[in-house]
Design a protein around this nucleic acid. Structure first.
Lengths: 128, 128
DNA sequence: ACATTATTTAAGCAAATACTTAAATAATGT
DNA sequence: ACATTATTTAAGTATTTGCTTAAATAATGT
């Protein structure tokens, strides 16, 4: 008697707040692109190795696969494949120097990436 | 002649900065727990549906699986399984009212979760 | 030209993901 | 007691992920 939904809802509670539900749908819809991009970034950051790679690159300005392999104690191809994903997502870029390839954060994305680490205590001890 | 690494390194560049590499290792090591937790949270947020679920719960204070199913246009079991992961990770908690179960953000985690959405424009239009 | 080094690419595979449908729980109303 | 409703759980499955090892590219030095 209360229901005029054209779509068969799985939820039949009488007191379901249809207005609230509609508002929510609209908010999601308006920000759909943002959610897509954000979840893509978080999916990349959601891997321990990749999160550390991003952190290290951001913190050291640039690093090569070789160094990352040393630091993270993982094989070079494994690192390389992570770097490729980060590059495909336009989070990092490369600079070639001889046979070494340096990866760095794409400046546009620095904000988003720095956000990822605001709960990691900043090392003062870097001043070698 | 330069190398006294006990571990066979994959990287043999002469100019590899061993100090830098050591410093990086230590930073990672000191923050290992933080990285583990962070990547766990990002892995959860790295799914489009789950990111939206977190956003909606945070924004509406509490929601039930039923409403989320309506809003996100996905089956109730699918939603329920996402909620379980969020609960297992101690990001959300439940309140039971009759047969309805309301999910809300665990206050401790509000900071971390709000961080996830700082690039999503805040809807002023919520004032229904 | 040839060997070495840094990196990427490719192929293979075990594990994790995210859904599906069906069944099990549990609270409510008649 | 019984049917309905909200939710969870379980089992099955296709896809994705993240490594592995081996091979392919490309730059460097002799």
């Amino acid at each position: 008697m209360e229901k005029e939904l054209d779509q068969v809802s799985s939820c039949i509670r009488l007191f379901a707040d249809q207005v609230q539900i509609q508002v929510c749908k609209e908010i999601l819809d308006e920000n759909d692109d943002a959610f897509t991009r954000l979840s893509q970034v978080y999916a990349l950051a959601g891997n321990d190795a990749r999160l550390k790679i991003l952190y290290l690159i951001q913190q050291q300005n640039e690093l090569c696969p070789c160094d990352l392999s040393d630091i993270l104690q993982m094989t070079v191809p494994a690192v390389s494949q992570h770097l490729r994903k980060l590059k495909d997502a336009s989070l990092v870029r490369t600079r070639k120097s001889g046979q070494t390839i340096f990866y760095s954060i794409i400046p546009d994305q620095a904000d988003v990436i720095n956000q990822l680490f605001i709960h990691i205590p900043n090392p003062e001890s870097i001043a070698v």
